[in-house]
């Protein structure tokens, strides 16, 4: 399984906010275990999608100079769920961005329906702490998530 929990950014305002979408599809294996007979997107994976949206927003602001890791979820409330066929829209607003880390406020919607909202804190792990700089965050984002940062990849060239 690939660890991509967003499909595409639809808006990316450096240092401010970003919106990404995740299309939920019945071909995803995990939906068949969660739950049998009632497939819904696991809350933990929605959280990961929101963290990827916010983490890339934070990392980009410092030109991916830091290794960004999810450090803490101080608050997260799930109000609803997402089923196959739904498009989850994740929005992240950058609240703090410092040398040590940052914080985002996130929301997940399906259409007008609020599915989840909360806060995520990220820490920057510097290269010394990362064991001699073996992780290259910039390469990670650009090779593993190639294209995901490009806004406007719909067939007609629009963001949506």
């Amino acid at each position: 399984m690939r660890w991509f929990w967003i499909d595409r950014f639809t808006e990316f305002k450096s240092g401010s906010h970003a919106t990404a979408i995740k299309n939920v599809t019945l071909s995803e294996d995990h939906l068949h275990d969660h739950m049998p007979g009632f497939p819904v997107m696991p809350a933990s994976l929605m959280l990961e999608g929101m963290a990827q949206t916010g983490g890339i927003l934070l990392g980009e602001q410092k030109q991916f100079a830091h290794i960004v890791i999810l450090a803490k979820v101080p608050r997260m409330t799930f109000h609803s769920w997402a089923c196959p066929g739904d498009t989850l829209v994740y929005t992240a607003k950058l609240i703090e961005a410092r040398d040590e880390g940052g914080m985002v406020e996130v929301q997940a919607h399906v259409g007008q329906r609020l599915v989840a909202e909360g806060e995520i804190v990220f820490a920057h792990v510097d290269e010394a702490a990362g064991g001699g700089g073996t992780i290259d965050q910039k390469n990670f984002v650009f090779s593993m998530l190639r294209g995901v940062l490009d806004v406007g990849k719909a067939g007609d060239g629009s963001a949506e």
Binding site: A71, K72, I95, E96, A123
Partner: peptide, 13 residues
Amino acid sequence: SIDFLDIVFRLEK
């Protein structure tokens, strides 16, 4: 340890 970062963010705000 990570809570100290969160606390600093909130105090600043």
